[in-house]
């Protein structure tokens, strides 16, 4: 299922098509991109190189994502064509849609997958548990059809030989209006005083900060380094820092030259927002914090010992020069 929002195809669409193509080739299947929306021919022509067929369901009522409307169309198509596998993004849209679709159809579903494969007709997946501290290999109950939601950025959107897929118009099966769930509007994120996406140096804090009063300590370090202070989700949930400082899937995506994470465990949602940073330091007293696996340099120590030491060092250098 292709995902798009406000006139743009989302990255997850290309990532799923890339993995879908690999699976289709391996299993002698064909790959179909399914586009639901209104006035979406432009998207369709962008996807023809990445799929064997691009199915387009155009209906004014599909203009904005609506899980109820999407479910009706997907369930009638899956019932009629019985695909081996339906891939949906593990995104705000996919999370709203996939479970209920699966239960309506009685098709096994698993979510937030990092990898998928078929083992003798049975679907095998890899997903994470315990905030990314553990990977799990799981098998789905044997069935003729499966649904899987895919973690964003789990697969690279590879450019292969153009498939030259045909665009197929599919009639909308929405007979009546969607009554139970109605999209009203989008609410834009608030704009703050600091733009973390423009920063070259970011010092980020997480749960390890423990108390709101401790933030000043790290702010001083950020100031000394000429950087800005950012954070992971729990800090914003507690309203210790404004939402525009949050790095991650539901916050900002940053690409600084230097990213220093202090007391952040490194849940996937946070890491997804800073993966493209040039140089990453992770300071955490938990040696098993998943964040270390994406760090260039790791320090297994208490941030409250490292932060003052760093600050002193920088002051020393500045006084000399």
């Amino acid at each position: 299922m292709a995902e798009h929002r406000r006139g743009d195809l989302r990255d997850i669409t290309h990532e799923m098509l890339s993995k879908g193509r690999e699976l289709a080739e391996k299993n002698g299947a064909s790959l179909t991109a399914l586009l639901l929306g209104h006035d979406i021919k432009g998207f369709a022509s962008k996807l023809t190189d990445q799929a064997n067929e691009v199915w387009v369901v155009d209906d004014l009522r599909l203009k904005n994502f609506n899980a109820e409307a999407y479910q009706r169309i997907l369930s009638s198509l899956i019932t009629e064509y019985k695909p081996l596998l339906t891939l949906i993004g593990h995104t705000a849209f996919g999370v709203d849609l996939a479970p209920r679709l699966a239960i309506e159809l009685g098709i096994p579903l698993t979510t937030d997958c990092l990898d998928i494969d078929f083992e003798g007709g049975v679907l095998s997946v890899i997903r994470q548990m315990y905030g990314g501290k553990v990977n799990a290999e799981a098998l789905l109950k044997e069935a003729e059809s499966y649904i899987v939601t895919i973690r964003p950025a789990a697969f690279e959107a590879k450019e292969g030989e153009p498939l030259g897929g045909e665009i197929v118009d599919v009639a909308s099966s929405l007979k009546e209006d969607v009554k139970n769930k109605k999209f009203i509007e989008y609410v834009e994120p608030s704009v703050g005083d600091v733009d973390v996406t423009a920063a070259e140096i970011i010092i980020a804090i997480g749960r390890g900060i423990k108390d709101k009063d401790n933030i000043t300590l790290v702010q001083e370090l950020a100031d000394a380094l000429g950087g800005v202070l950012a954070c992971s989700r729990p800090i914003v949930d507690k309203e210790w820092l404004p939402k525009d400082r949050q790095v991650g899937t539901s916050g900002k995506t940053v690409k600084p030259k230097l990213y220093i994470a202090m007391g952040i465990s490194g849940a996937f949602q946070h890491v997804a927002g800073m993966k493209s940073s040039d140089l990453v330091f992770v300071v955490n007293k938990d040696a098993k914090a998943p964040f270390f696996s994406v760090a260039d340099y790791g320090v297994i120590n208490d941030m409250f010992k490292i932060v003052p030491a760093l600050k002193n060092k920088i002051y020393e250098i500045k006084t000399i020069t």
Partner: peptide, 23 residues
């Protein structure tokens, strides 16, 4: 629908260099 077959520590994505010593 889902049966866990095996769990394991995720492989590191980067060759992380650990800095040791006093603060």
């Amino acid at each position: 629908w889902i049966k866990i077959e095996k769990i394991y520590v995720p492989p590191a994505e980067k060759q992380t260099e650990y800095i040791e010593g006093s603060p």
